[in-house]
Amino acid sequence: MKFLKPHNKEDELLARAKLGSDIAIREIVDSYSKYAFTIAFGVLANREDAEEIVQDAFLKAFTSLDKFKQTSKFSTWLYKIVYHTALNKYQSNKTISVNATISDNLHYIPTNLQSWDNILNNERKKYVDSALSQLEHTDRSIITLHYIAEKSISEICEITGYKKSAIKMRLLRSRKQLEGYFNTLLNQEIRELL
């Protein structure tokens, strides 16, 4: 998984990106954009806004790449920018109905669905999205960072600015909530996975 590349490879890519290397920039953008989008979507629950935030965050990050001291991973620094930019947008745009936009997303069906597996996967995704939409946006972001972006508790503290105890507490609470939803909605699926 590209996400777990060794730190040195990341440093090399960043050094080349600073010099304007197309390949290095493309590799960085391709590696992190999907996760950055998931984090932004977790806060905003709106695809257009999330794309705008990811775009802003990447431009901010690359503009101030010289200020990045490499005391942490680039991904941690980038997700911190994404999270706080998304949070600012969320606070300035609280009128957006979170549940409405998420359920809009649930009805999204790709046009290239042809096999039963694809339909099944789409259904599973709908249930998972539905379970995640029940969480508070901060909890959703923490869950995304921990389980999808595979960030440690310390890294999540750096990204969100919360204390370790708060992160652990929110993770435990969200896990319990998700477990409840998954047991109800995806009972058969969970059994298949186990």
């Binding site: 304007g20 197309d22 920039i25 493309r26 953008v29 391709d30 954009s33 999907k34 996760y35 989008f37 998931t38 979507f41 695809r47 999330a50 794309e51 990811v54 775009q55 990447f58 431009l59 690359f62 996967n121 599973r124 995704k125 249930y127 998972v128 999205d129 995640l132 869950i143 995304t144 389980y147 999808i148 896990r175 998700l178 477990e179 998954f182 995806l186 699926e189 969970i190 996975l193 186990l194």
Partner: peptide, 27 residues
């Protein structure tokens, strides 16, 4: 199990062409 479910089904994909546009802008 939760991690597996989330990694398989909770990653959000941006719209088609978004990555390409982002690459061009950042470069």
């Amino acid at each position: 199990t939760i991690k597996k479910i989330l990694q398989q089904h909770a990653i959000q994909e941006p719209s088609a062409g978004f990555n390409e546009r982002l690459n061009i802008q950042v470069t």
